[in-house]
């Protein structure tokens, strides 16, 4: 068993793909680094915090990108975003499935508008792939989780595989607390943060396939058949969810409403026991 959480972006790629099959595009020795960080007199990573390339998974060719959460929280700068967008556009040309190993706080604030534009380009490229029926799979198991623009991008993809340690959201907990007050969301309450944004709650809402924190478990959960995109049905689903659960103060209220027995025990269960506990009780 190899922990996804503890691995670097490059270790995740190496552990996921067939051994030795990864070929990197724009590798570190090309030194395509962030011009914005240089202007701000900050050290810039040789790969701008993301590795992109091609490889095989059980013999099947695919394209892959992995964000490095330890470099600036996996935040998307201009070069970082262009590497992911370029990979997605290549996938459209080649009709090749894409694995996105995401770990990101969202836009890199140092790069402001360039980072925002980069994220919107990623979203547009994902939607082009959805329209063409080329699958895009997100694997989210890192410490940072996936927030901000990359959280939106994740929800545009065909499938999401998550561990319970990972989180998915739009505004991060600290952002919500800072803008709306601690009564709205207490970012220091880690149990609350994970109940709301963590992999288990995302699995209960049917947004994520939950796997243990193990690279082999992530690999085993990958399904490559494309999911048809029906935006209006998706909107109706989200509207119904808001009507039913909009008044809930905590994910615990939602779990109780779904008829899950003693919902407070859910965060303590391992993946298998958790999946049995929620069987037939999905939102």
């Amino acid at each position: 068993m190899t922990s996804w959480l503890e691995a670097t972006a490059r270790e995740r790629i190496a552990g996921l793909l067939d051994p030795g099959s990864f070929t990197e595009f724009v590798p570190p020795e090309a030194r395509i680094t962030s011009p914005h960080l240089a202007q701000l007199n900050q050290p810039a990573a040789f790969d701008d915090g993301v590795a992109v390339g091609r490889g095989t998974l059980e013999g099947a060719p695919m394209l892959i990108a992995a964000q490095e959460g330890a470099f600036m929280g996996g935040a998307v700068g201009e070069v970082h975003g262009a590497k992911i967008t370029g990979l997605l556009e290549r996938a459209l040309d080649e009709r090749a499935p894409v694995l996105l190993l995401l770990e990101s706080g969202g836009v890199r604030l140092h790069e402001a508008n360039a980072g925002l534009i980069a994220v919107s380009e990623i979203m547009r490229a994902i939607l082009a792939l959805r329209g063409a029926g080329v699958p895009v799979i997100v694997l989210n198991g890192g410490r940072v989780g996936v927030f901000g623009g990359m959280g939106i991008a994740t929800c545009l993809c065909d499938r999401l595989i998550m561990s319970e340690d990972a989180r998915l959201g739009l505004s991060g907990p600290e952002v919500i607390e800072t803008t709306m007050g601690v009564e709205e969301f207490d970012a220091a309450d880690r149990a609350l943060v994970w109940r709301v944004t963590g992999g288990k709650n995302r699995a209960i809402f049917g947004e994520a396939v939950l796997v243990p924190d193990d690279i082999a478990a992530f690999r085993a959960a990958i399904r490559l058949d494309p999911v048809p995109l029906d935006v209006e049905a998706e909107h109706a689903l989200l509207g119904a969810r808001l009507d039913r659960f909009g008044a809930a103060e905590d994910a615990l209220d939602i779990w109780a409403d779904l008829g899950i027995e003693t919902p407070a025990r859910l965060p303590l269960l391992d993946t298998d026991d958790f999946l049995s506990a929620i069987e037939g009780k999905l939102a």
Binding site: T8, R10, P27, P28, E29, P43, A44, A45, F46, D47, E68, A70, F71
Partner: peptide
């Protein structure tokens, strides 16, 4: 081949 080791964290 060139090798990259460690992360700029």
């Amino acid at each position: 081949r060139p090798t990259l080791t460690g992360v700029l964290g």
